[in-house]
Each structure stands twice: as C-alpha cells, then as structure tokens.
C-alpha cells in the first residue's frame, strides 16, 4: 500500500480529534477541582470529621464551590481540613461563616457545607480559618434513639399490662367492659329508675288535681302566662 498524503491526513485528523477529546475531558475534570481557575484557601478545625476525605466537595448555598485539599491531624482530638475554593465565591463568604460536615444524600459522600455568615462581617481572606460547627454524628443520633426506644418500651409495657387487666375484667374499666353480671345489674338499675320516674309523674299529676294543692298550681300557671305575655 502506498503511503499517500490522504492517509497521512486521515491519521493526523484521527490523532488530533482524539487528543482534543482527551484534553477536553482533562479540562472538565480539572475544572471541577478548581485546578484551572483562580482559587483561595480556607480551613476549619473539627473534633471529628466522620470519614471526610481529600477531594470531597465543599458546598456553599447548595453549589459545589471547591474541594477538600488535605486533612491534617493537629492534636489528639482536633483535625484541620484545608479547602480550595473558587475565587468567584470568595465575596459571598463572610468571616463568621460556619463550616459543617454533612453528607451528600443518604448514601452519598461526605461534604463540607459552608453557611454564608452575616452581611455586616468582612469577607473571608485567603488562608482564613472558619468557625467549625460540629454536626451531630450518626453515633450520637443512634444513642438518643436508643434512649427514646427504651422509654417507648417501658410505656408500651405499661399499656400492655393495662389492656391485659381490662381484657381479664380486673379494675373498674375492666368490669365495665368485660363483667356480664355488672352489665346486667346496671341494666336492672336503669329499668328501676325508669319505673320510679313513671310512678313519680303519676303522683305529681294526682297532687295537681287535689283540692289542697290546686290553688298553688293555678298560681304557678298564671305567673307562667304573665311571663309569656311580657315577652
């Protein structure tokens, strides 16, 4: 096969396009890590960083603005994280901004979340240290959930014992719900009350018709009619 100019051009185009593709990919990856744009550095000191790693995202107002550059242990209980943030975000981060370690979704990577701070404070400078807000760790949440669960167990145990007593007919409420003799007694009492009130009504009617009390009832009726007229 002859080595024609056409073939050379084809090889040249092929290599150039592939290299351009590679360069674009490198640029796009680098851009995410703020490698090809102006950046500044800030740090924050935490007691526990909960598995944060170098390269994790730094988020400000929900936007990825930089990365965790490196992590260093300062003392036995403090860890400093150094962050590389895009210069364009610097003017929005105030000196009293707070850094917190959060999580990108339920199963996602750890991230550093920066809250903006108040407007009356000065803008953060290069190599400044932000205040760190130690977020509640998963272990602490689990410990609190355990206490709540223990309390819930005691309460549900008590409720189970009360429900057990009721279903066995013990106590006042238990008798009310479960004791058939008690229910029959109440039923009889209600019948007696009904009969009693019926008899009482008959007595009152008889009293109204007797000559001794007729005057009293007439007076009552007149007062009643007078009141109706006044209305």
């Amino acid at each position: 096969m002859k080595n024609t100019t056409g073939n050379k051009v084809k090889v040249g185009i092929f290599v150039t396009v592939s290299l351009a593709l590679f360069t674009v990919a490198i640029y796009l990856i680098g851009q995410r890590q703020q490698l090809f744009s102006d950046a500044f550095h800030i740090s924050a000191v935490f007691k526990d960083i909960g598995g944060l790693q170098g390269g994790n995202n730094v988020r400000f107002s929900g936007i990825n603005v930089g990365i965790v550059e490196d992590i260093e242990q300062i003392t036995d209980s403090t860890v400093r994280i150094n962050m590389r943030i895009g210069k364009a975000t610097q003017k929005f981060i105030k000196k009293n901004a707070r850094a917190t370690i959060g999580s990108d979704g339920l199963m996602g990577n750890k991230i550093v979340v920066i809250s903006p701070g108040t407007a009356d404070n000065r803008v953060v400078a290069d190599n400044d240290q932000l205040n760190a807000f130690q977020a509640v760790s998963m272990d602490e949440i689990m410990a609190k959930i355990k206490v709540t669960a223990d309390n819930a167990a005691v309460i549900t145990g008590g409720l189970a014992s009360i429900v057990g007593n009721i279903s066995e007919g013990r106590g006042t409420i238990g008798k009310l719900f479960m004791d058939t003799v008690f229910a029959k007694n109440i039923d009889n009492s209600l019948i007696n009350i009904k009969q009693g009130t019926k008899g009482f009504k008959q007595n009152m009617d008889a009293a109204g018709n007797s000559f001794l009390l007729r005057g009293f009832f007439k007076k009552k009726n007149k007062e009643k009619e007078q009141k109706n007229k006044d209305k």
Partner: peptide, 11 residues
C-alpha cells in the same frame, strides 16, 4: 513507514 503503520493499525 511509521505513519503508514499508524494509518493501518490506528485509523
């Protein structure tokens, strides 16, 4: 010859 081979094996 290298360019020719680059064409054959690459392109």
């Amino acid at each position: 010859e290298f360019i020719k081979q680059a064409y054959l094996v690459g392109y």
